[in-house]
Design a binder for these strands. Structure first.
Length: 163
DNA sequence: GCCAACGTTGGC
DNA sequence: GCCAACGTTGGC
């Protein structure tokens, strides 16, 4: 995707629902997106702008797929768990002066009326170039506007207006 | 639970 | 800077 494409950009965020589900985010209103320990995913987090929309994807469940929408509530800041030796996400190479890992906050927007499964996405020709299909393991991904809108449509949802 | 794909580390 | 070894993700 060209870097000069106009804002807003669109995103896909993966979470295991056993860890943090769309229902958890709905309950919380705004939630932390932390624990990312992969450099490309982190770099994507750092590109995300407040107000931009993301597809909320449930991974490692049956079936996997997009279940709803959220938006960036707070842009990237240092993930405190990297400094905490007690945390699963502790990184001994990170220091307060030179943090390695970032997190964002996201705000709940909506559930899609129907989940859009990975199977469905793979079966939709216009979605064949999605990062989700091409680089399955990346947990924070860019999505084109067209892909975003197509998935919302497949899920029977409506595009949220404004910020 | 398996295992393919792929990201990261570290020796050279 | 390459690449083998190793670790992790995530669909199935």
């Amino acid at each position: 995707m060209p870097e000069d494409r106009p804002r807003p950009w669109f995103w896909l965020l993966k979470s295991e629902p056993d860890t943090y589900s769309i229902d958890d985010l709905k309950r919380d209103g705004t939630g932390p997106w932390d624990g990312v320990r992969n450099f490309s995913a982190r770099n994507r987090l750092r590109e995300m702008k407040r107000g931009e929309l993301a597809l909320f994807y449930h991974s490692s469940t049956k079936p996997t797929g997009v279940v709803g929408l959220c938006r960036v509530a707070k842009e990237a800041y240092p993930d405190p768990s990297q400094f905490d030796p007690e945390s699963d996400y502790y990184d001994p190479k990170a220091t307060e002066e030179k943090p390695r890992w970032s997190m964002i906050d996201v705000r709940y927007v909506s559930h899609l009326p129907q989940m859009v499964t990975l199977e469905e996405i793979k079966a939709t020709p216009e979605l064949g170039e999605m990062v989700l299909v091409k680089r399955a393991r990346l947990s924070v991904q860019p999505v084109t506007r067209e892909e975003f809108e197509r998935i919302v449509e497949l899920g029977g949802g409506t595009l949220p207006k404004g910020k």
